[in-house]
Amino acid sequence: MLVMPKFEYVAPADVREASRLLLEADGKGFLLGGGTDLLVSVKQRVIVPSLVVSSRRLDELKGIRHVEGEGLYVGPATRLHQLYESPVVRATYPLIALAASVVGGNLHQHMGTVGGNLCLDTRCWYYNQTKFWRESYGLCFKQGGDACYVARGGQLCVAAYQGDTAAAFAAMQARLTIAGPRGDRQAPLTDLYSGDGKTPFTLRPGEIIAQVFVPEPTQPWKVFYKKYRQRGTIDFPLAAVAGALLLAADGRRCLDARVVLTGVHTQPVVAERAIAILKGNELTEEIIQEAGAAAAKQAHPAKTTHDTPQHRKRMIAVLVQEGIREVLGQPASPSAA
């Protein structure tokens, strides 16, 4: 039984008001989406909030709106299943539907929100544990202590960002509207992540993601989302790749590519090197292998999970290769051909 510590709870109906309340809570206020990440952390007391601000009545944060010729507006309080159950998301933004459909298990997809998924706290074997467990070990950087048990001697927390939809949204070049106590600002989704596992987000005090905008794809991109996890029905990604390829009429030459990795660093990683290899080239088996290897080089997993960093890195290459072959309509493994 994991009893939560006391906190205050409010359910405002206005985003600006929610933002003000969070600001006043001075770092101890948390917005509640589906609670499938936040409440676990509160139960384990890695987070001890003084105030929980519910998004239950924040109707302006809910729902999906598609504007033809412009793009998709997703409210951050939208549940993940609503993404893959939406005909327009499936038809026009399939990468996002794919990623949302493999977050945790069915119940996590029904409870979890888009905002909560993008702001999923970074994870580590030494962090996602009960207070009793953590104290018996000694607190690490991310918990306010003075050591890291993963990168011993290091000065930064390297806990992994293991959210799924961020990679898909990033590959689709999503932009955020962020509401703050002093008004709204816009930012590319990739700017949400700081790269520091201890404080993984660049949101300022009181700021809330108010909208996620995905520009409508003007070309027929072919997409894949490949995820490696321990159990296929429920687990976090140990390594995952969101990919989109724009192929020439011959179906072989790659005009443009987007490859984003997740689960293998403190933030989602745009695999620039793999993209450079794919772009402009015919997708021969050699190029596919090279692109996979280049993506793996940009993965920097640390020993934050039960799986080894070497294996997760290796899996990035495999996932990139499998994804490209899938898009080309080839068998997953060349030897199976």
């Binding site: 039984m1 119940l107 996590h108 029904h110 409870m111």
Partner: peptide
């Protein structure tokens, strides 16, 4: 588990299955 891993706390809210251990 009391933390969203096992599903044995599943109930329906407005017809939708949810984990009651992670619902306030």
């Amino acid at each position: 588990c009391d933390k969203g891993d096992c599903g044995c706390c599943t109930v329906l809210i407005d017809g939708e299955a949810v984990l009651s251990c992670l619902t306030l």
